[in-house]
Amino acid sequence: MPVSHKHPERHHYWTLGKLLCFSLLLLLSILTLLPLVLTFLYSFFPQSEIKAYLALRNNYNTEMWMDFLISPKQATVRQYYTILIDNPQYLKLFCNSVMYTVMILAGQALVVPLTSYCLTKFEFRGRDALFFVILALMLLPFQVTMTPTVITLRTLGLMDTIWAVILPMWFSPFYIFLLRQFMLAIPNDMFEAGMMDGCGPVRSYVHVMVPCCKPILCAAAALSFADCWNMVEQPLVYLANNTGLQPLSVMFNQLNAEGTEVAFAGAALYILPALLVYLYFQEDILLGVQLSELK
């Protein structure tokens, strides 16, 4: 019995609501994408045009406006050429960012899922206490948790080395929590069945848990990538005396100040990896959140 077709009034109501929602969301999506689109667009402008445009900033002349530039007099990839080949200072910092991101993600891949596995599928004394500590660390603001880390880094003599940025990130409480919430939803039966067949905890982890967690592992990897790619607070403090090791995220503004005419190409190149990661992992992020017990 098709009950839903018997309510013409309600149907009419939702069509109107739908149309309203659709147009509002469309407007919002355009606004959301605008800064990204402009950045990519401006990166193909000649440097002279960008320089002239940016010179209009902070001009408190009430007669003047700083409109959008719609199309360049001549589209060019000169900006990209400058930052990639003429002046590879930018590229060096880009490589620093890549290095930190790869090292941090590799460490997290080893530590984080294993810890969440222990917290969900093992029974041992102190498990709840450990989880409580992780939760408390997650809830404490960064200003609070970074202080003990700095004390340790100084004691160990790791300040101003790459490890100061990499090591503390390996034990990120948020990702342990995120994975734990997902693993809670995986039924114990699967592991019991494995146990019957003589599959120990380590093999269960490799052959049952990791394949089951694929969406949340991808989601966590993508989110953690975004964290590392955006990292500012940590390198700023941990690498205060070693600007050569700073990632792009910290130095970007300084580079902009030195050469504004290539800033948009720099920004576009900086956004590109994040964009690719997003496009590749977007479904996993959505699925991971949907299936875990965050709700």
Partner: peptide, 10 residues
């Protein structure tokens, strides 16, 4: 997932 540093100029 976008880096805020890259967007501050715009």
């Amino acid at each position: 997932l976008m880096p805020s540093a890259a967007l501050i100029l715009i």
